[in-house]
């Protein structure tokens, strides 16, 4: 009886493999290929377990632990020999000092190519591509005009000429004009969260807040991007902008502080 069960499992496994071959040659659908393989493995598993439980002897063996620790005499011999060898190596004192120097220099030389892995950070993280006079552009390059946005809406913008520059990504939003009269209600904030650098993509128009979808830091756009809640440790940088005579939006300078998450060199 038990042998029959194991035999049946082996037959099912063989059939499963045949099904897999059929699935492979008839289009290779993930579902059928996977289920055929799962069936095959499950049946083989049942056969192996059945064999172990019913058909193999249930004997117990005991292994004695004799391999460690070594006998005291062997340990003493090891200690003594190593001690005398180390003494022999260290006898020429001046050479030992030189050896350390040579090895340290070798290690330093070998480590040097690590320097090639990346450029020096310099002031890369302190600036973006926004400049005085940089035109505010949509991701497709079209400039933004003063009548383009409804009040309480927001879009992603870049400086014209640096489209898709990650460091310069920004959120252009429009609040009621009386809240920012000099720019007809337009404001631009960096889109890089000051916590962990995710795009601060959610504009909650009713609360006038920008929210980061990653760790839920919330910034108040009416309070210069101050942190309302969440793990961000400083406010979202705001880009100074003005409306050019031709009705387009332009920056009046770069962001006044580094954008994105903090780093050691940031003040």
């Amino acid at each position: 009886m038990k042998e029959r069960l194991v035999g049946a499992a082996l037959l099912v496994a063989t059939a499963g493999s045949a099904l897999f071959i059929a699935a492979y040659f008839t289009g290779g659908a993930r579902l059928y290929e996977g289920l055929a393989l799962a069936l095959t493995a499950a049946a083989l598993c049942a056969a192996a377990i059945g064999w172990a439980l019913w058909l193999l002897p249930h004997e117990q063996v005991a292994d004695e632990i004799v391999t460690y620790p070594s006998a005291p005499a062997q340990r003493a011999t090891q200690t003594g020999e190593v001690r005398s060898d180390v003494r022999a190596i260290a006898r020429p004192r001046a050479l030992v000092g030189l050896l350390y120097v040579a090895l340290a220099a070798f290690a330093a030389a070998l480590a040097l190519p690590i320097r090639s892995l990346g450029p020096a950070p310099r002031d890369t993280l302190f600036h973006t591509r926004w400049r005085k006079g940089a035109r505010v552009a949509r991701p497709n390059g079209n400039p933004v005009r003063v009548d383009d946005l409804e009040v309480d809406s927001a879009i992603t913008v870049f400086p014209a000429g640096a489209l898709e520059d990650s460091q310069s990504q920004a959120m252009l939003l429009r609040v009621p004009e009386e809240l920012a009269p000099s720019t007809r209600g337009y404001m631009i904030y960096s889109k890089l969260c000051t916590h962990a650098g995710c795009p601060v993509a959610l504009y909650r128009a009713a609360a006038k807040e920008l929210m980061c979808p990653c760790h839920q830091s919330v910034f108040n756009v009416l309070d210069d991007g101050a942190v309302v809640s969440g793990p961000a440790d400083h406010s979202l940088p705001r880009l100074p902008i003005e409306i050019a005579p031709d009705g387009t939006l332009v920056a009046t300078s770069d962001f006044p502080e580094p954008v994105g998450p903090s780093f050691w060199e940031r003040r």
Partner: peptide
Amino acid sequence: LLAVIAVACALGAL
């Protein structure tokens, strides 16, 4: 081993 394969394949399929 075969059980692990079976579970992984079933999850991968379903």
